[in-house]
Amino acid sequence: MNRTKWIIALWSLLGILTLIQLTAMRVLYPESIMMIEVFVYPLGSFVTGVLLLFMYLIPLFDYCARFKVRKRLVLLALFGVVYVLLYVLIVVCIYALFIVRSFEDFETAFMGFMLSNFSHTLKNYLFQIAIIYAYEFVYNLRVEITRKKDLEIKLGISKLQLLRSQLQPHFLFNSLNSVVSIIDENKVKAQEMLINLSDFLRITLNSDFKKLITLEEELENVKKYLSIEKIRFEDQLEYRIHMDDGASKLRVPSFILQPIVENAIKHGFQGIPEKLTILLEINTVDRMIRVKNNGKALTNAVENHGLGNVRKRLELYNPNGRDFKLYQKDGWVINEIPIR
């Protein structure tokens, strides 16, 4: 509802209240007011107020908007006096035309109405100005909130696009290095790895990083990645996925798990001779994804690029939610990813 409709609605409410008041006076004190005054006065006030609203008040209010606050208030105060004069003049004319049907005592009626209703009419003017100011404040506030939301969305999209451009070369270089490392030893496996890599990159390039996908889709992407690494490390790498019933339809940011799994493989193999096990657990009770590995113990090293991207994306995905965590427990290095 725009400001004009707000003012007319509230002005109508005042007119109805005035009509009720005059009707009560007519019922309780019949000699104090004529029946025609009960209807003509509220109707005349309403018509006058609406007329001045469109032809005087709103145009002048918008005109004053160009000035600073102090000058604006001074002008509105001066315009208020003129408003009262115009209002009383129109109402007295309506009174002369429809009630007494004579202009003989017009000057006396005008002065009498002015003396008795000046403050009341000025209050009506200030009431309308207050409504317009309130509407202007609320409107500007809504515009500002909308603008900030649009900026936040655009900023979020820009960040996601930047993270996407960082993620793809990072993964691509590592995967190609893996292919290079086995191409002389086993061309068939290298060829299979390149096919899997091609499929994985196609999915990555076609993915919309701004949207959420089901956990089932995300795990399929992770499996494609792990299939590439499994060819490289053979029996030295094992992975298992445990997922609660109903968890497959939960929604997560696309490709949020791949950097974590990649990091587990990259750092897990450092300094351990035994098999590396990657375990993915999806728990619907505490709404948490845990990526575990039994590889190299955690150090105080600074969080690497891949995990930094994960943390930033999760902040965009759920800014008020729980944080991404990395810790060690019972021989497992554990990454915790909250599900919204």
Rank of each mutant, 00 (worst) to 15 (best):
N309W: 12
Y327F: 15
M111T: 14
M35K: 03
H170L: 12
L60T: 09
Y87I: 00
R164L: 05
L197V: 06
V180R: 14
I195F: 06
M25A: 05
S181I: 05
I99N: 03
S248T: 08
N177M: 02
E144V: 05
R142A: 07
V84D: 04
N221V: 06
D323L: 02
L205V: 08
V74W: 13
K266S: 06
N2S: 05
Y56M: 05
L197I: 08
L97H: 05
F233N: 03
F233E: 02
T4M: 11
N196H: 10
L73C: 12
V81T: 11
Y139G: 05
K154H: 07
V74L: 13
S248K: 14
Y239A: 10
V302N: 10
D62G: 02
Q166I: 15
E281W: 03
I20T: 04
V285I: 03
Y41W: 09
N304Y: 09
H120D: 04
N221R: 14
V179E: 02
E234T: 00
I36D: 04
T146S: 13
L73W: 14
N283E: 04
N206R: 11
V143F: 10
R147W: 09
R311C: 01
F61R: 14
I153L: 13
V40A: 08
I90H: 01
I334H: 02
L226I: 07
R340F: 10
E303Y: 12
K148F: 11
F103L: 14
Q236I: 00
L176E: 00
I16L: 14
M193Q: 05
V27E: 02
L257G: 09
S248R: 12
K154N: 08
P273F: 08
F269A: 01
Y87Q: 00
L53G: 06
T204K: 02
D105S: 13
I7M: 12
Y87D: 00
D150N: 14
K210M: 10
N304K: 08
